[in-house]
């Protein structure tokens, strides 16, 4: 995998992060339970887990939208809830894109909407303009769109404008909650490949929540698996999908390629574990066919 930055550098670190909703009422429930993990600069992390496993609660802690009931969140070496830290600055450092992010669009023109974040940062007019153009370019937004109303665009285009609205703040970490949900296959592909390209060209750290294992294996280096608010595992792609039975046990899907490999194994053709990309599977398959 292509990594922009080689230097080992922790961007995100959590320590025994716990969040309880409705604390002190009969409805109290633990959404995130004692999570400790760290992410290094430039990594592309996939976050997977069943609905209600605490993924969305977790990511809202990483830019200070939620305050942990217990534990610490350390971003770029700073405890974000210590008194010295301005939480707004953390939100510019860690860009968070919510599910169905096109619902956040509100301005008259695409340009103004993308400029909302940089404007809140108090930047100069030229700087804002430069950032908007860069972000639009990174998300494949044509310059002719910038003067149009965001509500005239298609679903996939709106989604990319919303993404540009976060990228324009030039965060060091980009967190995406199912950025491709509800889009057609073409839209999915465009959004995800633009994110991947931006990751490679800028060396930004990306955390991506997705229910599609195929997308995860295609783009991520490491996978964080959550189950019932707890950290199930946090390993490289190879390792996670080599013990695929564990994933099925907690109700998660497998990449299509892994499924094919498993079916072949059932039929008596064992190609080995950890096959998650099409090319790898095809290569192994051809090797075996050639030998047989």
């Amino acid at each position: 995998m292509c990594r922009g930055v080689v230097k080992i550098n922790r961007v995100i670190q959590t320590d025994e992060l716990t969040h309880k909703y409705s604390l002190g009422t009969p409805f109290e429930s633990t959404a995130v339970d004692g999570l400790s993990f760290s992410v290094e600069k430039g990594e592309f992390i996939g976050i997977i887990g069943h609905t209600g496993s605490g993924k969305s609660t977790l990511i809202q802690h990483l830019n200070g939208l939620l305050k942990p009931t217990d534990g610490y969140v350390i971003i770029n070496g700073r405890d974000i809830w210590s008194k010295k830290v301005n939480i707004k600055e953390i939100r510019f450092e860690v860009g968070l894109v919510f599910q169905y992010s096109e619902h956040q669009l509100f301005e008259e023109t695409v340009f103004k909407d993308i400029a909302f974040g940089p404007k809140n940062m108090g930047l100069s007019q030229e700087e804002i303009e430069q950032r908007v153009l860069d972000a639009a370019c990174a998300m494949g937004i044509d310059e002719s769109w910038l003067s149009r109303s965001p509500f005239d665009l298609s679903g996939g285009e709106k989604r990319r404008v919303a993404l540009a609205g976060v990228i324009s703040m030039r965060p060091t970490v980009l967190i995406l909650d199912e950025p491709a949900a509800g889009l057609d296959p073409q839209g999915r592909k465009t959004v995800l490949s633009k994110i991947s390209q931006y990751h490679k060209s800028s060396g930004i750290t990306v955390l991506l929540i997705s229910h599609s294992m195929d997308d995860i294996v295609k783009y991520a280096d490491k996978v964080l698996v959550m189950e019932n608010g707890k950290l199930h595992s946090f390993e490289t792609i190879e390792k996670v999908f080599s013990h695929s039975h564990n994933l099925e046990k907690i109700g998660l899907d497998l990449p299509q390629t892994t499924k094919i490999a498993m079916r072949l194994k059932e039929k008596g053709l064992d190609l080995g574990d950890g096959l998650y990309t099409v090319s790898k599977l095809a290569q192994k398959f051809l090797e075996r066919i050639g030998k047989v």
Binding site: N63, R91, F98, Q104, M169
Partner: peptide, 13 residues
């Protein structure tokens, strides 16, 4: 609630 979080994430106070 959701929209407020999304705008806060873009630095709205």
């Amino acid at each position: 609630d959701k929209i407020m979080s999304a705008q806060k994430a873009r630095g709205a106070s």
